[in-house]
Amino acid sequence: MSRAGVESKDVTLLEILDRVLDRGVVLAGDLTISVADVDLIFVGLKVMLTSVERAERLRWGLAGSE
């Protein structure tokens, strides 16, 4: 898909993270919790922390440029 209208790579990455990690279809969430002894709850948490951290950094940067 076209990425026209996106102003920088950082914004694109933020937008992707925001969608891919926090939205979209959830299939039977309980089933994803533990597969092969890997606790996927922490997959989600790591993702979320990364997303929030990037988002906040980006936000400060943009706000500061005005």
């Binding site: 990690l21 979209g24 279809v25 039977a28 994803t32 993702v47």
Partner: peptide, 17 residues
């Protein structure tokens, strides 16, 4: 689109989901 990190053990479990 499905959210990142959706992992199921096998096809049978996925069909049930």
């Amino acid at each position: 689109p499905v959210r990142y990190g959706t992992v199921l053990p096998d096809a049978g479990t996925l069909v049930r989901a």
